[in-house]
Nucleic acid binder design. Sequence first.
DNA 1: CTGTTAGCGCCTTCAT
DNA 2: ATGAAGGCGCTAACAG
Lengths: 321, 321
Amino acid sequence: MLTIRDIAAKAGVSVSTASRALNNNPRISQATRERIQALAEAEGYLPNYNAKNLTAGESNAVGVVFATADRSQPENPFFIDILRGINAQLVQRDYVLSVAISKTADELLKNVKAMVAQGKIKRFVLLYAHQDDPIAAFLRQHHLRFVTIGQPDDNANDYFVDNDNLEAGIGGATFLLNQLQVKHPVFVESTHDWAYEQQRRQGYERVAATFNVEPLTCRLGELNRVRAFIKRHPEIDGIMATDDFNGIEFYRLMREQYGINHFPMVSFNQSLPNGLTDADLHSVNLFPEKMGSATVALLFSDKEPLETPTPGQIKIPFEIK
Amino acid sequence: MLTIRDIAAKAGVSVSTASRALNNNPRISQATRERIQALAEAEGYLPNYNAKNLTAGESNAVGVVFATADRSQPENPFFIDILRGINAQLVQRDYVLSVAISKTADELLKNVKAMVAQGKIKRFVLLYAHQDDPIAAFLRQHHLRFVTIGQPDDNANDYFVDNDNLEAGIGGATFLLNQLQVKHPVFVESTHDWAYEQQRRQGYERVAATFNVEPLTCRLGELNRVRAFIKRHPEIDGIMATDDFNGIEFYRLMREQYGINHFPMVSFNQSLPNGLTDADLHSVNLFPEKMGSATVALLFSDKEPLETPTPGQIKIPFEIK
DNA sequence: CTGTTAGCGCCTTCAT
DNA sequence: ATGAAGGCGCTAACAG
C-alpha cells in the first residue's frame, strides 16, 4: 500500500512537504505542489482516511438518520432518491455516508451516540422533522451540525431543507382548476397532521378562494366515514391529494360510489409507478435528489459559504407533470 | 475526551494492560480484566474507532451498495427494511453501515473503490444480484468479503441471501387454489426477466400441475396486448403476481374489462399499504428484515461460524397473510 | 519555502 | 501476568 512516505521519497522531499503539497497548502511553492500532486496521481496514491480522521479528530462521514419504523412516512422511494442526492455531493467532498436506522427510538439514539463518541462524526442529516426529537436535542446539545429534511416546527434555529409546500399546494391546485378544468376539487389528507400536508392544504385553500370555489377537505381514516363524506359530496369532480397513496385510496372509494373513470387527480412525489390507477393522475414533482444535494450544501455551509436568501433554510422548487 | 491512557492511569496499570483487558485478551488475569472493564464502563470510556481502524488496517464499516437507478428493482420499501435488519446486526458488532449509491455504474464503482482504498472497508453487501456486475468483479478480485441479496446466477461461489422463491411460489399458488378457491389463476410477471420472478413462476406451475389446472402466464408491458390477453381469457378468476405493483396493474385492466370486484389476488412483499385496490389482496411476506440480519451473519461467518445447511447461502422462509 | 519532530489513540511485538 | 517501546499514516507546531 502506497503511503505518503513513499511519494515523499519518490519526490525527494520530506513527508511534511508532501502532506502540505497534497493538501494544497500555500506555504509550498506552486511548482512543487503541482509536481508532487502529479506524482501522487501518477503513482495512484490515495490517502488513508482512518489516519486522516485520527489526526483531524473528526471523521469524514456524515450520519444520515432514518425515522423509526413507527413514525416512518409513506413515501419510501422518495428517501432512496434523497440518499442519491446526498451521496452524490458527499463523494465530491471525499465524504462517506453512514446511516443510522433502527426500529426503536432508544436504539436509534444509541446508534447516533456511538457515531459521535466513537466514530467522531460531526455532521448529520435527519430524514424527518419531528417535534421534541431526542436525536435533534442530543445533536444540539453537543453543538454538532445537522440539517433536517422537512421544516421543523419547534426549533426555528435548526437548519432544514424542504419543499416549498405552500407554493406547491398553490401550483397543484391551480393546475387542477386551470388545466384540468375541475370545478369542485377535494383536498385529501392523511390522519397524521404532518406539517407538509397542512402547508399544501393552505395552498389549496388560497387558490380555492381566488377561484371562488368552496374549499373541501377530506381526512382519510375510517372507511365508512370517508364513504359517507363522498356520498354527501357528489359534486366532487377532481382530487388533490397529499400523496399518491392517499389519492388512489380516495379515488377508489369514489369509483366504488359513482363508478367514475379517468377522474382528474393531482398529487405529490410520484411515488408509484403508473398503471396502478385509472385516474388521470398528475403529480407535483418535488425533486428529492435536489433536496439531497441542497441538504449537503447546508451541512457544509460553514466551510463553503452558500448564497441563499435565508441562510440555514433552503426551499426546493417543484414541477408539475 | 477519555482515552485509554486515562483509564490505564486510573486503574494503576500500563496502557498495554488496559488495552488487553478491554479486548478480553486471556493474557491478562480474569480478575484485572474484569476490574478494568468495570472501571471503563463506570467512567464512560469509549474507544476511538479511527484509532482502532488505523492500527487494525481495517475499518469497522460495512459497505452497502445500492443498484444504480436504471436497474433498480420495483420493491423499494423492501430495501429500507433490509437496511434495518442489516444495521441491527452491525450495531451489535460495533460496526457501522456505509452506503454506496449513485445514478451511474461508473460513479458507483468509484464510490466502492474509494471505500476500499481510502476507507479500508473490507466487507460489503450488494442489494442486488446482477450478472457480470463490475462491482462484484472488483470485490472478488481484491478478495473482499461480500454477500449479495438475491441469488446471483453467474458465480456460484458468491455468498448470498435470498428468499426461497420456488417455495414461496408454491406456497402462494397453493394458498390461491386451496384457501381462496380459485379455479383459473393467472401468473402475472414483469418484463424484466428477473430470476426471482421465474422461480416464483416455477412454483406456480408446479402447483398448477398438481391441481390439474392449465398454467397461464401474462407478461405485462404494452397495454393493448395485455388487454387482448385478458379478453382471450375470461375464465381467469384469481391472480398471482410477482409483486403488488404488477398485480394491481393487471387487476385494474381486468376490472376495466369485466367490472369484477374483490377479486382474489396473491402477491409478494407487501410493498403497498392497503386501500389502493379493491382486490382481495393477500401477500406472501418475505421478511426483509430477516434477510438483512441473515446477510450480516453470512458476512461475518469467517469469524463467527454459523450453522446453515449450505454454508454461503441462506434462504429465508415466508409467511402468507 | 522546506525539513525535523512530536503526537493523534490504539495495538502489539518484545522484554521482564 | 504485566510493562516499555515502537509504529499504524498523517498533520501541525516549531525551526531554519
